[in-house]
Simulated scan of single mutants.
Amino acid sequence: MGALMLAEGGTFQPPGADSFFLPPIAGGVTKPMVLVIASAIIVGAYFLIATRNLKLVPGKGQFVAEFAYEFSRNKIAREQIGAKDFRPFVPLIFALFTFVLVNNLFGIIPIIQFPTMSKIGFPIALAAVVYLVFHGVGFARHGFLGYFKHIMFPPGVPKPIYILLAPIEFLQKFIAQPAALAVRVFAAMFAGHLILLVFTLGGEYLLMEASVAFKPISVVAFAFAIALTFVEALIQVLQAYIFALLTANFIGAALAEGH
């Protein structure tokens, strides 16, 4: 990206991909690594504390914990996998939803202000787990050859069409779907954080470095940064939901008797 200079101040260097490469805190440990570990501790500690003394009329902490669990169980796992098979997968769906959600929300928490899922390695790692699970249960349910038949040769399709359809279905299930699962949340978090950086750092530059004529524009930049923070919060929640939803959908499709 090019630099920008407005009269009196120094040069404004717009944030870019290099803004996501943070220096190590100590040794080879970086801020995203610490945040990933912290998120797991936060999720585990919160639900342990919130459910330690369950009450018939829940307090705020218990209510949030129960809502998150019920939502993951009934609105995601049950609906996507089916009432017959969903129960063993509830812990996975619940863990993915809450883990991705906390890591996304780190991007708008003061001082932290870094969405962990904007580092592509973390979404890839989660997608790899999902990949092993949904293909693993598919092979277990249908058998090795039966699973390939299940995903590549859906019933009711004219046989000549299989020549074109079978490789497409194979690529979709084994490459495209898991890749899209990782890239979707990464791209959303990367782009959202970058936009917030542009308006925040741009506003700071206009206020501190630009000439007097341009300083009032900093108010507009900061206003956009605040408004976009709320939009980003919504996107962060939606991306966690979509990640868990697609995971459950992949598992449900792998277990289904029909295509």
Rank of each mutant, 00 (worst) to 15 (best):
A187V: 05
L255P: 02
T116I: 10
R52D: 05
S72K: 04
L234I: 04
I161C: 12
E204W: 13
F94G: 01
L4G: 01
E169T: 02
A210P: 02
Y131T: 03
A65Q: 06
Y46A: 06
V237S: 04
V212M: 10
P91S: 07
F134W: 11
M208S: 15
G192K: 01
E209P: 08
G82K: 01
P14E: 07
K55E: 14
V231A: 14
V36E: 07
F99H: 10
I49K: 07
A17C: 08
A223W: 08
E257K: 04
M33K: 02
G136R: 09
L101K: 11
L165V: 10
E70R: 13
V212A: 15
F250K: 07
I226R: 12
Y205T: 00
R73Q: 01
V90E: 06
N249T: 10
A3R: 15
S118Q: 08
T229Q: 10
N74R: 12
L164K: 09
V130E: 02
L96V: 09
G10D: 07
F21R: 15
L228C: 04
V129Q: 09
F47L: 08
F99V: 12
P91T: 06
F99I: 08
F99L: 13
P24F: 00
E8L: 12
I161V: 15
F89S: 07
G121F: 06
L171N: 09
F21G: 09
N104G: 08
F214V: 14
F139L: 14
E79P: 03
V102G: 00
A83L: 02
